[in-house]
Amino acid sequence: MSDDHVYLTLAEGHEDDTRWAYGTGFEDPLHGVDTTVPEGVDAGALAADCVALADDALVSAQRLAEWVTRAPELEEEVALANIGLDLLGQARLLYSRAGQVDGTGRDEDAYAYFRDTDDFRNVRLAELPSGDFAFAVVRLLVLSSWRLAHFRRLQAHPDPVLAAVAAKGVKELTYHRQYAAEWCVRLGDGTDESHRRMRAALDEVAPYLGELHTAYDVRDEVADDLRQVTRAAGLTLPVYRPLPGSGRAGEHTEHLAPLLTELQGIARAHPEATW
């Protein structure tokens, strides 16, 4: 063992990669995965599914990134940013897959930066403004529970690329859900003020739960997750009145356009820029 530097020791086994600060031992989640669309899979529907899942992730990642420099503690800031970057990674793979199969040959940037509000298919819960920390962890709990249940099913999807992206995502989302659940319990079971804020956050999220449908029926699984956490937190999930409309149909709140303006501004001002 080399004891010269702790991180050299930690990175042992990757001797060819001494620049550990740039990462060690990374694996390409799509390594060796066949990218031809299998027979019987509708390419158009597959591309639409990929875009919808990617839009959820991209918009969520942008909201999580807004916490950088604003989180209550440095450690939480890193955690939220990490989770956002996990989701951004999922979005990139899914956009790339959509471009491969929908016949347009678009790259990930074309989807992320050069589509307008009406073209986005994310659920509206993802685009709601950041709010306070309680809202951030409640929304993260709901979205990661839902996405995790969905991705678990997608691991058996006939498209090998989508299945591989889902397999990678399941591990990430399991952690996201755990992080969010721990905070929900801590805040719900905390002070009067944190409990009050958690109740307000649940009230805000509840009307958007009805939008969280997938091709698979995961509603019971997600409801179980939420019930388990809210019970441990001394909270109850309010009875929701689903809002009409759906982000999956391109119907969005007024909050998505400003988010996209910020997200897309530089890429649109300098379309061919590289850095």
Binding site: V6, T9, L10, A11, E12, G13, G25, R186
Partner: peptide, 18 residues
């Protein structure tokens, strides 16, 4: 932290937590 092939846990730093 114990590295992938490290034999023992190595001190890497500190942090704050509740």
């Amino acid at each position: 932290v114990r590295g992938k092939r490290g034999l023992n846990h190595v001190h890497v730093g500190s942090l704050h937590a509740a």
